[in-house]
Design a protein around this nucleic acid. Structure first.
Length: 223
DNA sequence: GCAAGGATATCG
DNA sequence: GATATCCTTGCA
């Protein structure tokens, strides 16, 4: 229900703008392949490569509305939370360890009752809800045998109408400079409660406040 | 409002 | 080799 486009070598907001590296190499490969990176040292983000090999471009999946598998997503969020606060070093950290365990237990209780619409309502939450990390980079998402894959909608699917899609600038790329910070390359379904930044109980119009404190100048695109 | 936290790009 | 920064989240 929410994505961002990162397109070409010129795009200063894209990991690819520095040329191919060990991290971003998948972006330079064939389309339909996953690129999962670690951000802020603790969160993973899922991208889908979208252009031909040699032309780096990808779509960052920023939010997902669960249609099924809610229990599995909840379990994956809980597992990811525990892994993120893994207990380390023994000795003088005894008190710290106890606090971490308490924090994991508190997060688990919170996730057990979290509204399903909020299980993947942000880029790092998407990766956590699907149990993804960097090892998924390079996976062919068009392979029907892949556990994570892109499928065509069912014939009777009556989901996204084009009129519901709005475009805004991308989130968290202030350092990229113009014109990239202003390019309206974030696309979302405006009335979906699962978009990032939305708060429980907030109405759709107020739910467009993005994470990261970036301003939104929304450009409504119809058709 | 900001801490958490590790890889990465970039600078010396 | 050192370090500022990063396509974020959830808590204080």
């Amino acid at each position: 229900v929410e994505v961002e486009a990162y397109v070409g070598l010129d795009d200063r907001a894209s990991h690819a703008h520095v040329g191919p590296t060990d991290r971003n190499r998948a972006m330079f490969g064939p389309p339909g392949v996953a690129y999962v990176y670690l951000v802020y040292g603790m969160h993973h983000c899922l991208n889908v490569v979208t252009d031909a090999a040699g032309r780096p471009a990808a779509l960052l999946i920023r939010a997902v509305a669960p249609l099924e598998g809610v229990a599995a997503m909840r379990a994956a969020r809980i597992a990811a939370g525990a892994a993120r606060r893994r207990i380390e070093a023994p000795a003088p950290a005894l008190d710290a360890d106890a606090r971490r365990i308490t924090a994991v237990e508190a997060e688990t209780r919170r996730l057990e009752v979290l509204d399903a619409a909020r299980l993947a309502s942000g880029p790092a939450l998407v990766a956590a809800a699907f149990g993804l990390d960097r090892s998924w980079t390079g996976r062919d998402l068009c392979d029907p045998r892949s556990a994570l894959r892109i499928e065509l909608p069912a014939p009777d699917w009556d989901g996204a109408e084009p009129a519901r899609v709005i475009a805004t600038p991308r989130i968290g790329i202030d350092g990229a400079g113009e014109p990239w910070v202003s390019r309206p390359w974030r696309f979302l379904l405006s009335d979906e409660p699962s978009v990032s930044g939305a708060r429980p109980g907030a109405r759709a119009s107020a739910g467009l406040r993005p994470a990261g404190g970036a301003r939104v100048r929304s450009t409504v695109e119809r058709g």
